[in-house]
Design a protein around this nucleic acid. Structure first.
Lengths: 162, 162
DNA sequence: CCAAGTTAGTAACATATGTTACTAATTTGA
DNA sequence: TCAAATTAGTAACATATGTTACTAACTTGG
């Protein structure tokens, strides 16, 4: 157990100036934006939006899920998911099957064409990840992933309150 | 001898399965989303949108800038900036002054009230950053910031192509 | 049972954001 | 010197996204 030493480099009471380039939350959001834009190319060629891709990915990972599970596993609200699913079904990428004993729920699965699309995008996405992360040494990358996890945990917890 | 089966060794092009929770780009975007949501509370109380806050921050940092400079320094396109500036001017937070010798350009600066708003939000934002980053040990935090920088560089460069 | 509450999903509306195309001002270069 | 290209900024349109509130299907507790 480590001692939570919240030391900062600045003196207590000294008012820091906010400088965007050194403001970590901003840097993280900006990086996310850049990444989204970069990945968007892979979706665009398949006529898939970002929410649609996320839905595809969750189904592709779990084989059969309900829409509510997609909501739990991604940063999208249920309306966004609902729209994405409707569009994917329309395109013939996703199938709905009635839930065994809850008629409100449909179970989602990939149609053959949806599986193909998923595979193609997944390949590009993984290649992008490799390329991106190759800028970091292996230990750096591992540390980065760990830090991401901790920060997300923290950000989500705080988000819970109100 | 015959080749029995597919090697499991990871090599370039080898097919991994895409698992969202282990897919770094997704984790980064998700963290960005969580952070945005968390910070939004500070803006909301001041009736400031995220693009408006970014504009305020850039002006607050540089004292006098043109809108185009805001575009260069943030992940927003010029229309988004234009709207944010218009709104901020309407609210009396930002002033426009004609550029010395280019009549297309207005120089933006903070009105006194804008400075107040900026100061209040900046204080909350810095406190949030402290809280967020306190989950990391000082060396972890430093490594994380460095990694962020490298990744952003890489993501932006790739974004250039095409 | 069955009234009250909860949950899954969607419709309808409001707002936000991106895209295209335009105006006006400036720069370029033949 | 002036036609063509570039740049700053905005308008108008299309699309995407969030919010509220609703329906239908379940669950619960008396």
């Amino acid at each position: 157990m480590t001692v939570a030493c919240v030391s900062r480099k600045t003196k207590p009471g000294a008012r820091r100036k906010l400088v965007l380039d050194q403001f970590a939350p901003y840097r993280i959001v900006a990086l996310g934006h850049a990444i989204s834009g970069r990945l968007a190319r892979a979706y665009r060629d398949e006529n898939i939006t970002i929410p649609e891709w996320r839905v595809l990915a969750v189904i592709g990972e779990a084989n059969e899920v309900a829409a509510r599970d997609v909501v739990k596993r991604t940063p999208m609200d249920k309306m966004t998911v609902s729209r994405a699913v409707a569009s994917l079904e329309q395109k013939g990428f996703v199938k709905r099957a009635p839930h065994k004993d809850d008629r409100r729920v449909s179970m989602l699965s990939l149609a053959p064409e949806g599986q193909d699309v998923f595979d193609r995008i997944a390949e590009l996405a993984l290649a992008f990840e490799d390329d991106l992360m190759s800028t970091l040494e292996p230990e750096e990358a591992a540390a980065f992933r760990l830090a991401l996890e901790k920060l997300e945990e923290k950000a989500r917890l705080n988000g819970q309150v109100e």
